[in-house]
Nucleic acid binder design. Structure first.
Length: 533
DNA sequence: TTGCAGTCAATATC
DNA sequence: GATATTGACTGCAA
């Protein structure tokens, strides 16, 4: 529809917004033959010309700013560099070059001395940096992303983490300078990267940036420069503010009040962050166990029972679902890499495990359900024997185990044989449908009842067990394993192959359980059977 | 309308 | 001070 509209009633350039211009640029590129025929997966010819032309439009990566060619060569330390070359192929090189090219010209490339002519930059720190904000850089990077071969997100983040830690570079700096993201996002990204095939175009962007950055031989130096500049700026500011007496606003973060005027008022508007109490979280988790996709009514009930805003409950479910999903991804990846080489797990393995554990565990429902209860103490007491340990023990044990498929749960058998829905796919689609209508069974009753006192544990046990492992990544992984490696020379393959692993499966199962449950319910109930996944 | 992806930014933790 | 967690928000797609 949009295309039709655009083709028949194009707006004049001057009337277009940045975003609105994008399609026209794309069209132009396409007309020039620079976008290749498909746009996407580009096999053979893609890179070279395309990229160039694209980049020529504007600089792809923010980072460019820190012109550093002149910088000596501390490279020695520059650990990252070494690898890149080996892996890189022509195309990669071109990418890398692209990344760097823009830099010099852009700013102060002049005498090797990064601008930083003053701290003023501080206030608008961003400017120099790259934030993709500007439509420009965004566009070009998008092109790069579109052209990019499949990347090993896990491997990339792993290397980035190594480089950052090895060189004592912070996530914040890296994020703001290289990725145009905040620290929290970077942390999240590095700890729980999603597999390439699961990423949207936008989601791939930071990985492309990271890859390009890794391929940049001067990456570390550049960042170091930035770091120094920042420090200087900070010192200056601090200095001046001090000397100027106190008046200066509290070191309000890097905001850039160009003029004095605004700062104050904002504070007022800020609404306090909601922090859910452990009990509330537990209740929500339990509710999730029983119904990952609660009906509006259920949500309302939960909200009232927990004395939360419905929007909070809704958000919580959204966040929880997507975060659990992500955990599963990394689980898979880890499982996969583990299968082949023990080492790989190092960084993300840790982080992945650690953080998620809390939520992740809950995802089986196991831990969550138990622990929470009302009296933490009581609950805990019980745990030891049961669930609690299940969580811990199972892993190792199961790991050794062969295919969990054998898991006791009769469910498994069933699921295996069936179409088996993708983790969420089915969920989203059909999942919700049946519920609203028929959920009667246990749903609402259960859910609503659940939170507070609840605990029939109905879901928790039954659910988790099964092990249907939705295709999610499996297929994808299999799909096209290497295109990227060849290009970017990333050692590890993306995706997970040996996802046979249990803990993983369990989680998925947990997640899927309710879905399956509903499906079965619906099926037995003669719901038209058009649920295919 | 609903769900999701991707982020931000406030907090918690380390 | 750096990193991790997480509630909320935005934009998009079905």
């Amino acid at each position: 529809g949009s295309v039709s509209d655009m083709l028949s009633r194009p707006k004049p350039w001057s009337k277009l917004t940045q975003k609105g211009r994008e399609p026209f640029i794309r069209m132009q590129l396409w007309l020039n033959g620079e976008l290749g025929q498909g746009v996407l997966p580009v096999q053979g010819q893609q890179q070279g010309p395309v990229l160039h032309s694209v980049t020529s439009l504007q600089d792809p990566l923010p980072q460019g700013c820190v012109s550093s060619e002149s910088t000596p060569k501390t490279s020695a330390s520059c650990s990252p560099a070494p690898e890149s070359p080996m892996s890189s192929s022509e195309s990669v090189k071109s990418l890398t070059e692209l990344v760097q090219q823009p830099c010099p010209p852009i700013d102060t490339s002049k005498d090797g001395k990064p601008p930083e002519p003053s701290d003023p930059p501080a206030p608008d720190s961003q400017p120099a940096t790259p934030l993709p904000l500007s439509g420009h850089s965004a566009l070009s990077i998008q092109e790069l992303v579109a052209m990019s071969p499949e990347l090993d997100t896990y491997g990339i983040t792993k290397r980035v983490k190594e480089v950052l830690t090895d060189n004592n570079l912070g996530q914040r700096l890296f994020g703001e300078t290289i990725l145009g993201l905040t620290q929290g996002s970077v942390s999240d990204l590095l700890a729980r990267p999603k597999p390439w095939h699961k990423l949207s175009l936008k989601g791939r962007e930071p990985f492309v940036r990271m890859q390009l950055w890794l391929n940049d031989p001067n990456n570390v130096e550049k960042l170091m420069d930035m770091k120094r500049m920042e420090k200087k700026a900070y010192m200056k500011r601090r200095h001046s503010s001090v000397s100027d007496s106190q008046p200066c606003e509290p070191p309000s973060v890097g905001t850039d009040y160009s003029q004095g005027a605004s700062p104050q008022p904002q504070h007022q508007l800020k609404k306090p962050r909601v922090v859910l109490a452990p009990e509330e979280k537990e209740a929500l988790k339990r509710a999730y166990q029983q119904k990952p996709y609660p009906s509006p009514k259920t949500i309302e009930d939960l909200a009232t029972q927990l004395n939360l805003k419905t929007s909070t409950v809704i958000n919580w479910f959204h966040n929880y679902r997507s975060r659990i999903r992500r955990e599963l991804f990394i689980e898979e990846i880890q499982a996969g890499s583990q299968g082949q080489a023990g080492a790989s797990d190092s960084p993300s393995a840790r982080s992945g495990r650690a953080a998620p554990s809390s939520e992740g565990d809950s995802c089986d429902g196991v831990e969550a359900s138990v622990e929470a209860t009302d009296g933490p103490g009581a609950a805990d007491a019980e745990e030891p024997g049961g669930p609690a340990q299940r969580e811990e023990a199972p892993r190792p044990a199961e790991k050794a185990e062969p295919p969990p498929s054998g898991t006791p749960g009769p469910d498994d058998a069933d699921e295996e044989g069936r179409p088996r829905p993708p983790p969420e796919g089915p969920t989203d689609g059909p999942g919700p449908l049946p519920n609203p209508a028929a959920p009667a069974a246990g749903e609402d009753a259960a859910t609503s009842a659940a939170p507070p006192g609840e605990g029939p544990g109905a879901a928790r046990d039954g659910a988790p067990r099964s092990s249907a492992l939705p295709s999610t990544s499996a297929p994808a992984a299999a799909r096209r394993p290497s295109s990227l490696q060849s290009l970017f020379g990333l050692p590890e393959a993306a995706g997970a192959r040996d996802s046979r692993d249990n803990p993983l499966r369990k989680k998925k199962a947990a997640n899927l359980n309710s879905i399956i449950h509903r499906l079965e319910k619906a099926a037995s109930r003669e719901e038209p059977i058009e649920w295919e996944f």
